[in-house]
């Protein structure tokens, strides 16, 4: 099926409220109206295969986890992710529009600090499950700043200098 793709990733644990919303009728209708017709969901542990709400022109693919999510990141036109630093960095490096959904159930949530900081700097959009539909509707993710490219030699320069290995 043609149309744009959304990749949803929740990390190694589960994020039921998010996966439930993604497969609900209001979300699918909205996604469809924004021309997203392919949704891939990495739903983590404790969730059975996801089922779509009826009458949908959206193709859904889901799995709990796999060793490399690289391909799914690359194929996506929009990424909806949990607040894990790995997923955030991966998406930013690929310069993909990114919506990070904070999981309010996680109490020790220092990771949301990262998402909030990057939201303030306009590299991504940070939201909650209850506000995700609004966030998607406002399409603010289309006008984000690209994250600076990874400078492979940055660390090497620092270390060489510290050790006097120039």
């Amino acid at each position: 099926m043609s149309g744009k793709s959304i990749f949803v990733t929740v990390g190694s644990t589960s994020f039921h409220s998010l996966t439930a919303l993604i497969t609900s009728q209001p979300f699918l209708q909205l996604a469809s109206s924004l021309h997203y017709h392919n949704i891939t969901v990495q739903h983590g542990t404790g969730t059975m295969g996801l089922q779509l709400a009826e009458t949908s022109d959206i193709r859904l693919e889901s799995y709990d986890y796999k060793p490399s999510l690289q391909e799914d990141y690359e194929r996506a036109d929009l990424i909806i992710s949990h607040a894990g630093a790995g997923s955030i960095l991966e998406s930013l490096r690929l310069e993909k529009p990114l919506i990070v959904v904070i999981n309010d159930l996680l109490m020790d949530n220092h990771q949301s600090e990262l998402a909030i900081e990057l939201h303030q700097q306009k590299y991504l959009i940070c939201t909650s499950v209850s506000n995700l539909l609004e966030t998607l509707k406002s399409r603010g993710y289309e006008t984000l700043k690209p994250f600076p490219r990874h400078d492979e030699l940055a660390f090497a320069r620092i270390l060489d200098k510290e050790l006097g290995l120039n």
Binding site: G86, H150, L153, A156, L159
Partner: peptide, 16 residues
């Protein structure tokens, strides 16, 4: 594990 290793490999990439 996981995130730590990922970041470490990024750091090492440019080392001679």
């Amino acid at each position: 594990s996981g995130g730590h290793t990922m970041e470490m490999l990024q750091l090492l990439q440019g080392l001679d």
